[in-house]
């Protein structure tokens, strides 16, 4: 990154954000550290039929009195979560519009801070080509956060990012927290494979699509020969007029809907984030609406 995104000012901002969240939101990712597996915590989760060999202390005798049938009470398991944040570090995130990369880093840092405040473990990765580079690994606690968060400034946004291949070849972890994928998703690369991979591993999925102002509402007009920043052999040479812009917006809508549907179909969340959006608006507005914060 040419510009230092994580600086003292940002940390002050994120501290203030955390403070506000504590007063207004129950907690990060639902406020409890419940896993999707049933365990031995005190919190009731569900019933199932009793089978011989089960712990008889977990039989609900009141239900037996009523229905004359044995039911086993299930309790949620509770353990430390591991939030994994993946940042698309391709050139398209920074070319001509560095605010996209900046916004991606800010969001990653913010989620990391919220996680470490919940005493969760946080890892941050940058996707370069078909590999996942570990930027911060297994960070726990505020001290570790403050020591490591500056590393996000060093992420190089260059080349392409093949998210499907990169995620599939990396260690994801099994059902122990959120996998947050931050990208502009302006690719026909197989990002669905990445989402599927998260789902297979029973990870909570959160896809954040960051787009610049120009990408959301293009102002280009006239006869244009547009080159792709990631692939110079890919170009678009047409006259851009009102009809073309309308078609572009249709395409944008199609892409965002497709990602959203794909995520939601796998129990995940999706959010489109303008690169110029304030973090406070994002966390108090979109993330609460989405149910990521409660």
């Amino acid at each position: 990154m040419e510009k230092t995104v994580i600086d003292e000012a940002f940390l002050s901002e994120i501290e203030a954000l955390q403070s506000l969240l504590q007063h207004n939101v129950a907690g990060m990712f639902g406020g409890n550290h419940q896993s999707k597996s049933f365990g031995s915590s005190c919190e009731f989760a569900d019933y199932r039929d009793y089978v011989p060999g089960d712990d008889v202390t977990k039989i609900d005798w009141n239900v037996y009195a009523r229905f004359d049938k044995l039911y086993q009470k299930l309790y949620l398991d509770e353990r430390q979560m591991h939030t994994k944040i993946y940042i698309d570090a391709s050139r398209s995130m920074q070319h001509a519009t560095p605010e996209k990369a900046e916004q991606a880093i800010r969001i990653a840092a913010a989620f990391a801070y919220l996680s470490v405040n919940e005493m969760d473990k946080v890892s941050v990765y940058a996707i370069h080509g078909d590999r996942v580079d570990e930027i911060i690994s297994g960070m726990v606690g505020k001290d570790a956060y403050l020591c490591n968060v500056n590393l996000l400034n060093d992420i190089e946004f260059t080349g392409v990012a093949r998210m499907g291949d990169a995620i599939r070849s990396s260690r994801i972890g099994m059902g122990d927290g959120y996998s947050i994928l931050i990208s502009d998703f302006l690719t026909d690369d197989d990002y669905e494979a990445a989402i599927d991979r998260f789902a297979e591993q029973r990870r909570d999925i959160l896809c954040l699509q960051i787009l610049s102002r120009e990408e959301l509402n293009p102002q280009l007009r006239g006869k244009m020969h547009l080159f792709d920043s990631e692939d110079q052999s890919s170009f678009f040479r047409k006259k851009i007029d009102k009809d073309r812009v309308n078609a572009y917006k249709e395409a944008l809508k199609y892409v965002t809907e497709r990602i959203k549907n794909y995520c939601e179909a796998r129990g995940g969340h999706y959010q489109l984030i303008p690169a110029y959006q304030k973090l406070s608006d994002l966390f108090f507005g979109d993330m609460v609406d989405l149910g990521v914060l409660k």
């Binding site: 519009t97 690719t187 006869k223 792709d228 890919s234 170009f235």
Partner: peptide
Amino acid sequence: YTEQTVPSTYLWQLS
């Protein structure tokens, strides 16, 4: 034609 490099031509091509 005016030449310009944009972050991605994906959406333009999809349009």
